[in-house]
Design a protein around this nucleic acid. Structure first.
Lengths: 150, 150
DNA sequence: AGAAGCGCCGTATAAATATGCATGTGTATG
DNA sequence: CATACACATGCATATTTATACGGCGCTTCT
């Protein structure tokens, strides 16, 4: 038999999850029971780990694909998330507030993007001043940044 | 302020997870506390969901990369997991046992791979017969299949 | 055959995660 | 300004997941 039960069960698990969203191990257990596969939640916990399936908002999913490192978010998004406390438009400029000593790294991330809307940036300790070519560009930039934050 | 707290915290979460493995929400909570960010586990549960971070054997990880497609395992791996109950070498042939009516799909998956070790397959209801060119190829094929099952 | 080793699995339970409800706070609307 | 609203969050708790422990069945030695 060579371990056939376990492998067969795991195959069925992959098959089930490929076809429908299953939100908990207990739900999975019930599904498998329909297929005459009766095991406990504990076993499924172990199976899911072995198969590298992870729980997401949309049910269990294979992790196989991501493996690699903390896949890249746009660096600017990360920086905004991390540092941006507030922003205020002022004519054709945008004033960003950050926590203490957050301004430099945030400005660096902004510069790195080479946005056409950004004529230049000046960073203090907790404040970044972005100069844009026009009022319009200023608004556009603001929208863009909000978009990055989702 | 515009929600700054939440975004800042989520930024810090991404930063932390990029640098080290964190195994539980409570551990994450303690880490954040070091950074003067005091929130409860409940809030982190919500944050992690929003950021699409999932719990893996190696700590929380971004799911962003895979998002959609139920990433492909080699189809043969799936089929073997699902159907293979046993295999027996016999000279230059390999006899595979499957559950009832599992032979056809398994044979199809095998054919799909176009392995040089496979001269041909014959599938009944719960048995697949694989014919290989030589005894040696037969052993090699067996190893290969074992490898696919990990 | 007996003993030792190993993997799989169930049971019971500990640990971790998700969530219903209530509260506070900032924003928008009349 | 007052009211309505949308969020973000904490608290308490329900739900879900992980695991320590032990048993069973197989395989491998001696």
């Amino acid at each position: 038999m060579i371990n056939a039960h376990k492998r067969f069960r795991q195959g069925q698990i992959l098959k089930l999850l490929a076809n429908e969203a299953i939100a908990s191990q207990d739900e999975l257990r019930r599904r498998l029971a329909h297929l005459k596969l009766r095991v406990t939640q504990a076993t499924l916990s172990r199976d899911l780990r072995e198969l590298k399936l992870v729980k997401t908002a949309e049910g269990y999913r294979p992790l196989s694909a991501i493996a690699e490192e903390t896949a890249a978010q746009p660096p600017l998004t990360r920086a905004l998330r991390e540092y941006l406390l507030d922003f205020r438009p002022a004519q054709n400029m945008l004033v960003l507030k950050t926590p203490p000593s957050g301004a430099q790294p945030l400005a660096a991330a902004l510069d790195g993007e080479r946005f056409p809307e950004i004529a230049g940036t000046i960073a203090g300790d907790d404040t970044v001043l972005i100069v844009t070519p026009s009022r319009k560009a200023c608004v556009a930039l603001q929208k863009k940044m909000e978009g990055l934050l989702q």
